[in-house]
Amino acid sequence: MCGIVGILDRSGEAAPVGATALAMLSALGCRGPDSAGIALWGAEAAGHVLRIKPGDGSDLAARRREITRRAARFGRVRPSPGAGSLMRLCVETTRPDDVAHAVEDVSPDVEIVSLGRRLEIVKQVGAPQSLATDFGIGASLGTHALGHTRLSTESRVDLSHSQPFWAHGLPDLAVVHNGHITNYHRLRRIYEQEGVRFYTENDSEIIGVYLARKLRAGARLDEALRESVSELDGSFSYLAATADAFGFAKDPFCLKPLLVAETDGMVAIANEERALAAALPAGYRAREAGAGEVLTWSRPAGPSSRQVRRHRRAVSA
């Protein structure tokens, strides 16, 4: 079934979208109790922020050191101690792809969970609330966020298979999906022949790969979403966002729920209204997205990242 949520704060200020996404996800916990995750776009970092699954190993501390050492080949690295089970590195580099490859070369089970100047993804097996206790996501500020709570139907339950999915190879693009992509195997074969690495057996992973190819070829997010409605098969309601845009796409047969509510201050999207009620003050009006509908919003021009950081310090003080 899966619960998906999205929140965009229209003030342009650093807003508590982490707490909002968490509240929305908690309202949808019953749609998917096995894993949960949140993608959050915050202040622009001084470099690229990597969230990394260090994998398993007999000496995990040594592996973490090795990951940090390899990332440092490409620029100054600032690790965040105490970032939870997913390592967090900020790397000042102009070659984020090379950093990602070098880090993942440490071991086959090392995986970049997210990479971007604004984007950070935290996810794991467990209920949404565990994201607050393990990663402090409830205190994170930003402009927009996506969330996912998973009911696995066909692929395994572990961190890698949980959502949101970062679109590997394209900084700051992430996706959450409810449904089933039925031309997954065909598309995957095509992409693999072109050298794309897949990290999971989860059909939802293909959406990020698909969108990343479109965006790299010069399409805007809204154009890529619109083309996906006819090029992806199956039942889907999915949300996608970059550092600058946020939107959804729904399959042409309207097979999965997706409710949208816009207020002056916020855009909230979820596949049940319970989640909208957790995000918005009373008086909003929810509507079901239409068959094949695509809608996107731009991140409002906000304060400089310096202001956001100052605000973040004030909140955490």
Binding site: C254, R285, E288, G290
Partner: peptide, 26 residues
Amino acid sequence: DGNAGNGAAASIRGGTVVIRGDAAAR
């Protein structure tokens, strides 16, 4: 009073369903 999601009034055999806002698919 507001809008309704997919499949409003699906398979009803009688009675009246009034949606003051918009109805969705099916």
